[in-house]
Nucleic acid binder design. Sequence first.
DNA 1: CCGTATCCGAGATGATACTG
DNA 2: CAGTATCATCTCGGATACGG
Lengths: 123, 123
Amino acid sequence: MAVVRRPGADHCGIAAAMAVIDGKWKVSLLWELERSPRRRFGELRRLVPGVSEKVLAAQLRELENDGIVHREVYDEVPPRVEYSLTPLGEELNGALEALGEWGTKHLLPAAAPGRLPERPGPA
Amino acid sequence: MAVVRRPGADHCGIAAAMAVIDGKWKVSLLWELERSPRRRFGELRRLVPGVSEKVLAAQLRELENDGIVHREVYDEVPPRVEYSLTPLGEELNGALEALGEWGTKHLLPAAAPGRLPERPGPA
DNA sequence: CCGTATCCGAGATGATACTG
DNA sequence: CAGTATCATCTCGGATACGG
């Protein structure tokens, strides 16, 4: 479980939430799974450029163990596995919106009018 | 500068914000500075148990460089330095509230009625 | 009191090869 | 296709000692 990697994660909501999204690619994964559910492993690999197979698998497992993503295995050949957000994961994504708006407003390079929608995604 | 440590930090508000709060103790520091502004270095060291002097100084510098905290140096002996949140830092803290509520609601051990206020702090 | 300078280790990530 | 196994790397943070 991921949930005790930050100090105070056992009694502070923020630290606990940070523990869940701690991992270089997790926010990107949440983002992609929100944009379109039922993503396959290879799709995610392509959608999140730079992540290795090992780390992608590991972070998906952690998100699964934390109840954020659901992993559906189809018994076919070739194999097929689909990942999607759980209701809890969708709530988490919602809770991240305020943070995303703050970042967009204050940190991103000044956007041309019309660009940079409310919650722009990675890559 | 801290702001490009996560993938997509240059074009995704969430990644950019995550880059700013990336650092084991930064959220705790934000929390303490919100609870009471004008904290001295030694106070923060005590208020955030476990942090070393090196890392405390480093993360305060990063927050300062990112415009989140203000560092006021008084030319006295013995030396005195006070840290406080900037308006931007206060906004950031506000943007973290939703995340804290999500974490408190879904991750923390069930709280006895009356305990765990809206945004409980670390330590 | 408020830091900085070094050294070091742990853990997370990356690269690659391999398997059901 | 969807991973696992293995090894290399790299960054962050911890410990300690010293300086203004």
